[in-house]
């Protein structure tokens, strides 16, 4: 169990700190864009792009952080919606949406795995991953259409792994009474990770990381992001996990590095998918960002990785009632 002081949503000082810091960053970046606009040096298209991004964040941040503050059920519901939106974009981009049966099973799988999180039924939660994968593998056999079997099954299992089983770990964390600071830290740290990679890459420059996969990423940006994110997560993590076996510098640094590396890996994973398909963005929902997946790609691998690290040391939701719905 993650240590938590008694009280409401803002009982933990880290929760309050992250919310205030986020609001401050939003305000400062808004003022900075205003300054750029007033100076008249930036081109109109660039100013428009900056405002679009900033406005998207203003809508997105309450939708991301709000449910976490509101409570367990809200968090799991928000993760469910996010999973479905991510799957929709992936399915339309890869063409998997034309496989109605597989799409239906993945949607039902996403609902089931998030139900298991809502129920705090860890056994079912973990069982759903192999069970759904098996179901996806056999379900299209009766259609007697072996052409394309490997491709559609692989696309479907990857989809359920990333958006169903993987992302649902974020919701399952909410079963721990002390989930708020950790989930807020992950949500903000992966965003910071992206910003740090971009900024370090621009400031330092140097050789490209994987030019064929993602032409704008540099090695310096990637290492810079690891340094920034690791320090931040380790410092905040020390406050969250004080007095537990995780509050050890080695594990805290490992956790920070895991957030950064898994975050960048998720980003590169989506870049690989987009490059293979020959598209730039997965969608058009978020002006200035692209699709939902373009924004949340970094979270896909961070959620299960950090879940299992924390689970190994502390366990999630062990103190809370389990199987609250199924009894």
């Amino acid at each position: 169990m993650i240590p938590h002081p008694p009280g409401g949503a803002f009982a933990h000082p880290v929760t309050t700190g992250i919310i205030i810091a986020t609001l401050a960053v939003l305000a400062v970046s808004g003022l900075a864009i205003l300054g750029i606009a007033r100076s008249g040096r930036a081109k109109p298209e660039f100013r428009r792009e900056l405002w679009l991004r900033w406005a998207s964040w203003c809508v997105l941040l309450p939708l991301m952080l709000g449910p976490v503050l509101l409570g367990r059920e809200w968090t799991i519901a928000a993760v469910t919606v996010l999973s479905l939106l991510c799957y929709r974009e992936y399915a339309r981009a890869t063409g998997l949406f034309r496989e109605r049966l597989l799409s239906l099973i993945i949607v039902l799988g996403i609902l089931a795995v998030n139900f298991a999180a809502l129920d705090n039924w860890y056994g079912f939660f973990t069982a759903l991953w192999p069970l759904t994968a098996c179901l996806l593998a056999v379900s299209t056999i009766p259609l007697d259409r072996p052409a394309g079997y490997i491709q559609r099954t692989a696309l479907a299992i990857l989809a359920f792994m990333l958006f169903g089983a993987g992302l649902a770990h974020l919701g399952f964390m909410a079963n721990d009474p002390g989930y708020r600071p950790l989930v807020l830290l992950l949500l903000t740290a992966v965003a910071l990770n992206d910003v740090a990679a971009f900024t370090c890459g621009k400031l330092i420059g140097g050789p490209k990381l994987l030019p064929a996969t993602s032409p704008n990423k540099t090695i310096s940006g990637s290492l810079g992001a690891v340094a920034v994110t690791t320090s931040l997560v380790a410092l905040v993590g020390a406050a969250i996990f004080r007095g537990t076996p995780l509050a050890n510098p080695v594990w805290l640094v490992a956790m920070g590095a895991l957030v950064s590396i898994a975050g960048q890996a998720g980003d590169l994973l989506l870049s690989s998918i987009k490059r293979d398909l020959g598209i730039k963005d997965m969608g058009t929902v978020l002006p200035g960002h692209g699709g939902v997946l373009d924004r949340f790609n970094s979270l896909l691998l961070v959620a299960p990785a950090i879940f299992h690290l924390v689970h190994y040391f502390l366990g999630f939701g062990l103190g809370a009632a389990s199987r609250v719905i199924t009894g």
Partner: peptide, 11 residues
């Protein structure tokens, strides 16, 4: 392997 994105992708 043939990947065929939705024809209306990006709209």
């Amino acid at each position: 392997w043939k990947l065929r994105p939705a024809r209306d992708l990006g709209l």
